Simulated scan of single mutants.
Amino acid sequence: MSLRREALLAAAARGPFVRVLVAEVKGSAPREPGAEMLVWPDHVEGTIGGGALEFEAIARARSCQGARLERFALGPDMGQCCGGAVSLAFEPMDAQSLAHIEGTVFARPLGAPSEMPLAVTRARAEARRAGTQPPLLCAGWLVETLAPDPEQLWVWGAGHVGRAIVNVIAPLPDWAIRWADTDAARFPDTLPQGVTRLIAENPADLVSLAPPSARHLILTFSHALDFELCHRLLGRGFSACGLIGSQTKWSRFQRRLTELGHSPAQISRIACPIGDPSLGKAPQAIAISVAAALLRERIERAGTAATKEGCTA
């Protein structure tokens, strides 16, 4: 439930749009609070769950004249069998309006401009004090924290598995992917949004460009390059690192890394194999399991604070 200002600014470069946000859910619904889609006159990005609700939301977004909140009972209003109710926020956005977003917690009314209610003031102050997520919908206002900079994910190798992983993870929010290999011909002609291509005769020379907070997936065409990347990344530091390979390959790497002076505790921070081997070795299976692990960890880190906050109007 964070507002991704930089991503919205990039979207605004393609023209004004309406952001449709799931602000509140009662009962069963296709998507959770915080799900969003961006609607232009001629195209849409993102989804709030598809079906009749999304179709109606797109139509209303394209006729939207100002920020507002609308409630949809999915059964009676939409003929859907979910059985719940969804409140959607509609916000027209462009580069000029996005330039006014500032601070760590951004609040604005869904309707005519008005003085900020006391409940919203308190919710913002508590979110800043405790570093928690505020209630998304509070006294008719939207209250969102500004998302931090995207996490850097470095994918080493543009082969079958590298391509599958980038294609699966790139559409997910809050990732900045750096994709490295030896030659431009190894990459697809068109890169997904948010992906930066890096080319070097020896990709291991690029390790010094990666911040110690980055995550890494090592899956090149060469065991020798894989090993050099492991060695250099252990010296550089990282948030997490995964290596594609068999147990035999990893045992050999562990022995050689130890000979180079890395401690067992350091070496054990590299996960090998990546993903869930029980799902198979197909590139798409590996990509899905890797993405699932990344999402699960992110939810575990942020989930408790996001689900316990409330708002008293």
Rank of each mutant, 00 (worst) to 15 (best):
H262Y: 07
G280M: 00
G235P: 12
A180W: 10
A293V: 02
H216Q: 06
F187G: 02
G75T: 11
L234D: 06
E36G: 09
G103H: 06
V168Q: 14
S251T: 14
S251K: 15
T220G: 07
L98H: 02
G15F: 03
R31N: 00
H231L: 15
D226F: 05
R301L: 11
Q254T: 15
L243H: 01
V25Q: 08
E56I: 11
A185L: 12
W175G: 12
W250H: 12
P171E: 12
A35R: 04
G157P: 10
K26P: 02
F221G: 08
L110C: 04
R19D: 11
I169H: 05
K249A: 06
H160P: 04
A184V: 14
L233R: 11
H100T: 15
L9F: 10
V39T: 02
V290S: 00
I270L: 07
Q266A: 13
T190R: 15
C81K: 01
R197G: 09
P188K: 07
R108V: 00
L142M: 12
F253G: 03
L191R: 05
E36F: 06
A13L: 13
I270P: 01
L74Y: 08
H223S: 10
G83Q: 05
G34H: 07
A313H: 14
A306P: 02
A119F: 05
P277G: 02
E151C: 13
A224F: 07
V290T: 00
P173D: 10
K26R: 15
R163C: 13
Q254L: 09
G131M: 06
H160Y: 04
L295G: 11
R255N: 13
H216E: 05
Q254S: 14
G310L: 15
F106Y: 14
V120P: 00
I169E: 02
P173H: 10
F106S: 04
Q96R: 14
F72W: 13
A200G: 08
A11I: 02
P148R: 03
C82H: 05
H262V: 04
P30M: 07
A107G: 03
I288W: 01
A285P: 01
E45C: 08
M78E: 11
G66L: 10
H262I: 03
E151P: 08
G303H: 08
N167T: 14
E102T: 14
P117D: 03
L219E: 01
E126V: 09
I199L: 09
D183T: 14
R62I: 07
G194E: 10
L225P: 09
I218S: 07
S222Y: 08
